[in-house]
Every structure is written in C-alpha cells, then in structure tokens.
C-alpha cells in the first residue's frame, strides 16, 4: 500500500505540471490583453506594470475595429440554427435509412460515410461557387450548407444507434394509429436523445470554430468570430497586438462558459462518438 501512495504522489506532481502547461497559455493571453500594445510582443510573460497597464482600451478598440458584437451574433445564429437543423433532419434520415432498408438507402448510407474522409479543400471552390449561384451566400443559406456537410458524421452516428432500437415499440405505435411521422417524434426520437445530445455537441464544436467555410461562403458580408479575428491581421501582416489579445479573450469566454455548463455531456459525447466511429 505504501508503495502505491508514493507512486500516486509522484503521478500527482506530474499531472500538476501538465495542468500548468495546459492552462498557462490562456492566462498569458488574458494578462497581455490588459497591456499596452507595444509592450506585448517583447515581454509577454511579464505582468502589466504601471507603465504598461492599458485598462480596457484594447477591448474597446478591438470591439470597434472587428465589429465583434455583430460577429458574436452571427456566430451564435449560424451555430444554433445549423445544429438544430442537423439534429432534426439527419436523425430522421438515419431512421429512414435503417427502417426502409434497400439498395437505394444502402447507397446513400455509404455516400454519407464516404463524405467523412474527404478533405474540405476537395470541394471548397465548387461548393462556394454553387452556394453563390443558388443564393445561399447568406446566414440562412449557409445553414443548408452546414446540414449537407454535417450529414455524414451525424447520419452515421444516429443510424448506428437506431439499429439497436427494438422494432416492437414502433409497431405498437403503428397499431395504435400513428403514421410514421408521429411514430418517429413520439416514440423513436425520445429514445435517441442521448445520441442527439452527442451529435449536437460535436457539431457545435465544429461550426462555432469553423473558419474557412463561412469565410468563403459569407465572409465578405458577414463575419463570424474566427473571421473577425483573422481580419485583425492586416494586409501586410501588421497586427494590433493589444486588440488581438482582447479579441482572443472574448472569443475564448463563450467557449469556456459552454464547456463549464455542459462539461458532463461534452465528455460523454466525445467518448460515445468515438465508440460509434
């Protein structure tokens, strides 16, 4: 027993060291967001002094230069609606694929699976041109693009789970006079809820942080948070470091809030998503 205690103490110290390495980058950014812009790049590891303390000036100038507040709104709008669309439509599609099994549904199933390994660069040019031609280059149209791109992983995960749902309850609902639409929403979807949460979380993490897709499709008119941050880097690589630090902090805050409030589901979702993969 004694030996295990010593060993665990050593491991505890190793874990503390790792934890410091994982947290400190975020703290360094937070600390620098309160320093004057010229003191940041040369001495990033030093706390603000009386000379270098900038108050909230970086935040006010950063918010004004990047249009952070509308960006936050667009990021929230696009993420929430796209995730809702993905959960509603791909779960229904997955159920259809499993329950109306045939050659056609098998082909679409494998097309969905196939789409998961294709790099975005393969379709980025043609997809953004098509989005443009079809007038999908606005915050509502991009939701359809996200539904199409998110379909692969989401259909795959839903159908993996639906295969284990017993047919009996659905047949009982049919006998009670439910049509397939009612059966699905009254009986099947409540059973799918854990998978739906997993799918929602994985897609939220992707869409909220996505840069290139929204940049190519709507970036010239609507900036999401990642686009607004990249926009701070001027044409010739000159960056207002103060504003940059403040924007990084503002970009991290919503993520940390999301994480701390739904951590239990996120950790479970990641583990569950991997088993299905």
């Amino acid at each position: 027993m004694k030996k295990t205690n010593v060993l665990n103490a050593v491991f505890f110290i190793v874990l503390i060291a790792f934890a410091i390495m994982f947290v400190s980058p975020v703290f360094i950014v937070l600390m620098n967001s309160f320093k004057t812009k010229f003191s940041i790049s040369q001495t990033p590891f030093i706390l603000p002094s009386a000379d270098t303390f900038a108050g909230i000036e970086n935040y006010t100038s950063g918010i004004a230069n990047t249009g952070f507040i509308p960006s936050f709104g667009w990021s929230l709008f696009i993420t929430l609606l796209s995730v809702a669309a993905i959960v509603i439509f791909t779960s229904m599609t997955a159920w259809y694929i499993v329950r109306a099994k045939g050659t056609f549904t098998s082909i679409i199933y494998y097309l969905f699976v196939f789409s998961m390994i294709v790099p975005f660069q393969m379709v980025m040019f043609t997809m953004s041109k098509i989005a443009n031609i079809l007038r999908l280059d606005n915050p509502l149209g991009i939701i359809i693009i996200y539904l199409g791109f998110g379909a692969g992983l989401s259909v795959f995960m839903f159908s993996g789970f639906i295969k284990s749902v017993p047919l009996g309850i659905e047949e009982a609902a049919t006998i009670d006079g439910c049509n397939p639409f009612q059966t699905y929403w009254k009986v099947v979807f409540p059973i799918l809820k854990p998978t739906a949460i997993t799918v929602a979380i994985l897609n939220t993490m992707w869409i909220w942080n996505d840069y290139l897709l929204p940049y190519l499709v709507i970036g010239s008119d609507y900036k999401t948070i990642p686009i607004a941050i990249q926009y701070l880097k001027g044409g010739y690589g000159s960056i207002d470091m103060g504003a940059m630090m403040a924007m990084l902090v503002l970009a991290i805050i919503p993520v940390v809030v999301f994480y701390l409030t739904s951590q239990k589901y996120i950790i479970k979702g990641v583990a569950a998503g991997a088993v299905k993969g």
């Binding site: 229904m92 599609t93 259809y96 097309l111 989005a131 359809i144 996200y146 199409g148 379909a151 639409f181």
Partner: peptide
Amino acid sequence: WFPVFALPTLVAFLIAFLIPF
C-alpha cells in the same frame, strides 16, 4: 414518407457535398 424523412438532408447533401465533389 421519403420526402419528409430523407429529402431535406439529401438535397442539402447534394448541394454542399456530392455535386461539388
């Protein structure tokens, strides 16, 4: 019930992925 269950996802999938691919 194909138009209700599968069509919306398939149309989006065609526009965003399959046709561009």
